[in-house]
Structure formats: structure tokens, C-alpha cells
Amino acid sequence: MRYICTICGYVYDEEVEGVAFDELADDYRCPLCTAPKELFEKEIKEEKEEVREAIIDEDIHEISNGELAAIFSNLARGLEKQSKLKESKDMMTLSEHFRDKMTPFDDTSLETLRSLIDEDITVRYPNVQKVADEKADRGTKRIVTWGLKVTSIIKALLDSYTKEGEEFLMDKKIFICSVCGFIYVGKKAPDICPVCKVPEFKFEEVR
């Protein structure tokens, strides 16, 4: 039987390895992207029962400060790529204005962060996927593919930190893919991003 890493596609082949996947230690991690054991799936998957209707809220209220910050930093990146550096700086000023305008949330805590990430994985991304499929919106399907993987890794890292504390990150560096946001914990950045496949120089160390 073969087991596939749902994050980067790494194949654990029991025949080649000589050890059954189930017999691997609980803290086994994908050698390429460090995804934990539970993010592997058997190669022959049972059909998923998933005919759930997408939940669509009726009200589109105003654009929040956090959304505006992301809109403008994204447009700043677009302008930078067009070599419009002055314009890009103006856009970034707008982005920073709205980022700084965000007020702290009353429920700021690691638990809240974890449940946001959890609900992204179980509710919000599946919702987006469903609607994008219905509307054959390829661009939106792509953000689900990458975003879901990156979010799953974040959840796995938070889980590991909760279990092991500072020990988990001791003597290790944290790298982020500047393209898709994938986070890698280890001695050095991977040769290619396990999620979006850009080369190593696109990784930056978070200090």
C-alpha cells in the first residue's frame, strides 16, 4: 500500500520502505514538507461523502480594515511587478493605514487563532471550493488548493507547539515561502516549496 502526503504529494511506499505505515511512530513527519502522519492519505481513497451545500451569507457588508489592508498590499505587489515603484509605495501606504486601523480583537488568544484555522479547513475552504466548482472559477479553485495546504501545515505546527512547547522550535529556523505562505520548520529551507514548487531562494527566514 502507498500513502500520499496531502500537502506536497510525497509517496510513502510500504513495499520500498519495508515498514507498514501504521507501524511508523506517531511523530513521523513527511521528509519533504514536515506534514504530520495524520495528513497522509491511503492512495486508494474511499469516495468521500461530501454533497454538502455551500453556506452563503446574504449580506455583504462593508469591507473591513483587514480586508482593505490585504487588497492594497496585493495591488502594491502588482505594481511592483510592473516596475511602478512609486505607485507601489503609495499603495503600500494605504495598506499600512488600514492595517494600523485594526483594533485588537476581544478574544485574542492562541485558542481563538487555532479555531479560526480549524474552521478555515473544515468550513470556509470547503465552501469556497463548492462555489468555485459550481461556477467553474479556475482562479478561485487555485486559491483553495494552495491555501488549504498552507493552512493545514499551520494547524499542524500549532498542534506540535502546543504538545512540545518551546522544545519544538529550539535550534530550528522558521522559513516562509514568499509566494504561497507555506511555513517550514527546520535547519535550512527546502529546495523547492512543497506547495507551490517555487525554488529555495523564494523562502525567507522569519526572525
Partner: peptide, 11 residues
């Protein structure tokens, strides 16, 4: 940082 990058992609 990662949350912002994903949000930019959504935008």
C-alpha cells in the same frame, strides 16, 4: 505573514 499572503491571493 502567511495569513496576509493567503489573503492577498483571495483578494
Amino acid at each position: 505573514r502567511s495569513s496576509r499572503l493567503m489573503n492577498e491571493d483571495i483578494m
